[in-house]
């Protein structure tokens, strides 16, 4: 069957006349709405992108350009000097390798554990289930800063039920080793892990149960059912949780500062850049004391920020769908 519009052979004005002006009114309204919508969205998108665009333009400027009132966003002299300085000041080469390895390991561990837990909450009935899920909600609610003090001391004087002290005579200082954070991630108590559990549970709850039951009837154990049947189904949500974990770990300052202060990570070196730059530049100029202009420091900090987020932007360009779509596919409800 082919669709034909009523009166498609007549011109727009003719049809408008028969409708008594209604068609024109409707057309004008829809065009008007599109124009207003375009202006609104263009403005808001520009507003969101503007800081990144500004950073890009500043990063290619020389120091003189920021004092020059004629230069607004296009540098008068194109230079990549800022990148070189920021690279050295942040120890970028070492930092990016460390951050990459660390973020991948941590987020893999976190997502693996959260998937297990999320599946357990979604698909099994057991006593005290509500209570434990309440604990997950508590974990989402409690800011890590609240327990930061005692976590800090907990790992400063680390001990497992007094065993270590009994053997070696003193507790272990795990403050500057990544081990505590790996342990926390394995226990689903890392950065925003409650949220991942919640999302993954939502996703599994919406999957139909037939496949699983068929697997049980055929004699597959619960764990093998999970690995072989359910896990492939949950690929989208696992991918997106992994991406989130990766990105948030990449920029996280809180846990990184607390447990990995001694290591060169992009997030911590970027956070300390405003303070460390002055000395770095003075050393570069061969001076022992003096001041560096605030504007210049800010310029380098924005270049540094740009360098830290460029890998993330590239990742986002390729995996945009995975980021956005699986969140909407979970059907979040309360």
């Amino acid at each position: 069957m082919t669709k034909t519009k009523v009166g498609a052979d007549r011109s727009f004005w003719e049809r408008n006349k028969t409708s008594g002006g209604y068609l024109l009114k409707k057309k004008l309204l829809s065009v008007g709405i599109s124009v207003v919508r375009f202006i609104l969205l263009f403005g808001m998108c520009f507003m969101i992108l503007q800081p990144i665009l500004n950073k890009i333009s500043v990063s290619f400027m020389k120091e003189a350009d920021i004092y020059n009132p004629i230069v607004i966003s296009i540098p008068s002299e194109f230079s990549t000097e800022n990148y070189r300085i920021a690279w050295d000041a942040m120890n970028y080469g070492k930092g990016i390798v460390n951050t990459l390895v660390f973020s991948i390991l941590i987020s893999l561990l976190q997502v693996a554990m959260c998937t297990l837990v999320g599946y357990g909450f979604a698909r099994f009935n057991f006593p005290l289930k509500k209570f434990w899920f309440g604990c997950v909600m508590v974990m989402i609610l409690v800011p890590p800063q609240t327990i930061a003090t005692s976590l800090y001391l907990h790992f400063r004087f680390f001990d497992v039920l007094g065993i270590i002290k009994a053997i070696t005579g003193s507790t272990v200082n795990l403050r500057n080793s990544p081990l505590p954070y790996f342990l926390m991630s394995a226990g689903c108590t890392g950065l925003k892990n409650g949220l991942y559990i919640f999302l993954i549970r939502q996703f599994f709850r919406n999957l139909p149960g037939d496949l699983e039951e068929a697997a049980y009837v055929d004699g597959l154990g619960t764990f093998r059912t999970f690995i072989q049947i359910m896990l492939p189904e949950a690929k989208p949500i696992i991918t997106s949780c992994f991406l989130f974990a990766f990105v948030w770990q990449w920029t996280d300052g809180f846990y990184s500062r607390m447990f990995l202060g001694g290591r060169t990570l992009l997030s911590t070196s970027l956070a300390s850049l405003p303070d460390s730059l002055t000395n770095f530049i003075l050393r570069m100029w061969g001076q022992t004391s003096g001041t560096v202009a605030v504007g210049y420091i800010n310029m380098l900090v924005s270049t540094g920020t740009l360098m830290v987020i460029v890998p993330l932007i590239i990742l986002y360009l390729f995996a945009q769908r995975a980021f956005v779509e699986s969140i909407s596919s979970t059907g979040i409800k309360m």
């Binding site: 434990w132 689903c188 619960t222 999970f226």
Partner: peptide, 9 residues
């Protein structure tokens, strides 16, 4: 098995 699954948490 439900408890085993949420044991890490």
């Amino acid at each position: 098995s439900g408890y085993l699954f949420i044991m890490p948490f």
